[in-house]
């Protein structure tokens, strides 16, 4: 479902003497449907960079990045957008929403974007918010005013609203209490059970051990000191 072949990534800082900073080289990974893979490595080793390359947010310098058969390194913007809408979900650590939009609609948005019936989408959003213990009185408010933990849960709810065949999870259990952490892990297990291929970053070792089938240490892809 997700396959990287010899992917490298570097940043060229044109405004700082055109310094070239290689951050990743020779990255090859393969994740099958129903499989959950954890990215590990020290801070700065390039876990987030790899996730962003898979999401198409960073442009791979070389190699191929296949998700659901599409090579994100070469795809047209609209092809990537379609992929993100239908196939590839991303739960980041930070909530980014349009001001003024109620929480319920923020969560339903991924379903509405694929043309789901509005009522069905809102029902699904409501059930997720309930599972993640967001009080119902907050559903019609914009999440921009919520606490960090609440925003994180809204983010997770919206990430799991649509059953994406491939998912990227960036620290999904960070800053959650025991009960909500359990809910999120259950959501991940459910996603695996329906066949989603998942790549995640988990600092929470317990969570990693419970849901992940194997680990990939991204330090393997860290290039030597810049030549």
């Amino acid at each position: 479902m997700i396959e990287l072949k010899d992917v490298s990534k570097s940043f060229t800082l044109h405004n700082q003497g055109s310094a070239v900073i290689p951050v990743m080289a020779g990255a090859s990974i393969k994740v099958a449907p129903g499989e959950c893979v954890a990215l590990t490595g020290a801070s700065g080793a390039g876990k987030s960079t790899l996730m962003r390359v898979i999401y198409g947010n960073y442009l791979a310098a070389s190699g191929q990045v296949f998700v659901g058969g599409l090579d994100l390194a070469r795809a047209e913007p609209r092809e990537i957008l379609t992929l993100r809408r239908e196939t590839l979900g991303y739960v980041s650590q930070f909530l980014r929403v349009v001001p003024r939009v109620p929480t319920l609609e923020v969560v339903a948005e991924p379903l509405l974007a694929i043309g789901c019936d509005k009522q069905k989408a809102l029902d699904k959003a409501a059930s997720l918010l309930a599972r993640l213990n967001i009080p119902e009185r907050l559903w019609m408010l914009s999440p921009t005013t919520f606490s960090g933990g609440e925003q994180q849960r809204v983010n997770i709810a919206s990430g799991f609203a649509h059953d994406y065949p491939a998912m990227l999870l960036d620290e999904p259990t960070a800053s959650l209490d025991v009960q909500n952490r359990e809910t999120v892990l259950t959501l991940i297990e459910e996603a695996k059970a329906r066949g989603a291929a998942i790549v995640g970053i988990f600092h929470d070792v317990g969570a990693r051990d419970r849901v992940c089938d194997r680990e990939i240490n991204v330090s393997e892809f860290t290039p030597g000191v810049a030549a």
């Binding site: 060229t12 044109h14 947010n57 442009l59 913007p77």
Partner: peptide, 18 residues
């Protein structure tokens, strides 16, 4: 030219970076 978040988060051209 490209995907909005890619151009903004990983700009390739000197001018875009600026």
């Amino acid at each position: 030219a490209g995907l909005t978040d890619q151009v903004l988060d990983d700009p390739q051209h000197a001018y875009t970076q600026l």
